[in-house]
Write a protein that binds this DNA or RNA. Structure first.
Lengths: 180, 180
DNA sequence: CGCCATTCAGTTGTGCACAATTGAGTTGTG
DNA sequence: CACAACTCAATTGTGCACAACTGAATGGCG
């Protein structure tokens, strides 16, 4: 039983107020350092908790969670070059190349150099990979059930997370040294 | 520039309705398979986007994001055995042992076998590790700024994520074969 | 006391994330 | 055509997450 980091009302109250932080002025850095642990950490923990549930549910399919995400994209789009796959999933070739090699070894996909552009490698589902979709159809319900969230809650959370991701990506771009 | 996976309104609309899913009945598995990609994926993407921003901000401190989390816990609690550290962070010795070894190599912590219990290893901050806290104090503000979220938004999101994590952990426990 | 289950940190092995680099292939421009 | 700039997948190296296991230390129990 992992000790869930408690909401810790003391932290909340110590930094809260009717006036936005930027105007109100001195929120002590000490407080912020503790709050900070809560938010970044909560996201991390939730992501890993998801990973744990997927690991259990996907064991029957012989897929890891990232491999499942790749398969989802392929089931939806049929076939894609590695580059496009990476854009859908926010992953680069450093992550995808070995992952796809494992999927190929498992007989779920094939990788073929594009004839039009010899730089590009197109990833296609094999018959076996296509067939696996049938097994995968029951996965989402099990996951959704595990969350205990109803559809609206999920959708709203997703919207917040996407907004957050957008803001973080924009900030990362701005702050990267080589892009002023 | 990674192409941000768009909200894709078609997906949303295809599964949405005024009636809660559990009552409305047959949501097609196909739809769910696509929605599923959105939620688990959004969480993953947000977590990694956070990682990207932390990577930039923490570069000055010479810390990775997980190392920073460990330091946060140590700054708050002074010293802890590896086990307790793991409970705070939801990490086991397989992750912490090498991480702590790197922090020790960096001169930020020491690891000493407990005299009371020779099985236990207590992690302590060095003077250098304690001093690093001063540098870390400005990190949370930069992160908070990068999110573009105000405090209430952060706190609410955190509450939702913690709820989600709790539900997922409970589900994982129930569904684990060896605990019926 | 002697034995055994439990607790703890560490190790090993697999897989993912990401930065940096490589090398083949392509495209634009003179 | 020639050549520089760019694109793309793959590779290398570092670090994290987690399962499975090892081995030492502890604590309970007969």
């Amino acid at each position: 039983m992992t000790t869930t980091p408690a909401p810790d009302p003391a932290v909340r109250d110590s930094v809260r107020g009717p006036v936005p932080d930027s105007v109100r002025g001195p929120v002590r850095d000490d407080d912020f350092l503790r709050l900070d642990q809560q938010i970044c950490f909560s996201l991390n923990a939730a992501s890993r908790a998801f990973g744990g549930v997927y690991r259990i549910v996907l064991k029957d399919l012989g897929l890891t969670y990232p491999q499942y995400l790749v398969m989802l994209v392929l089931w939806e789009h049929g076939e894609l070059p590695v580059k496009k796959l990476g854009e859908h999933l926010r992953l680069d070739s450093g992550t995808l190349s070995p992952l796809l090699k494992r999927l190929e070894a498992a007989g779920l996909v094939r990788r073929e150099r594009s004839a039009q552009d010899e730089r590009s490698v197109v990833v296609r589902l094999t018959d076996e990979g296509t067939a696996l979709r049938e097994q995968a159809l029951r996965v989402p319900r099990r996951i959704a059930a595990a969350t205990g969230f109803d559809l609206d809650e999920i959708l709203e959370l997703r919207a917040r997370l996407d907004k957050l991701t957008g803001a973080l990506d924009a900030a990362a771009l701005e702050e990267t040294p080589g892009c002023a």
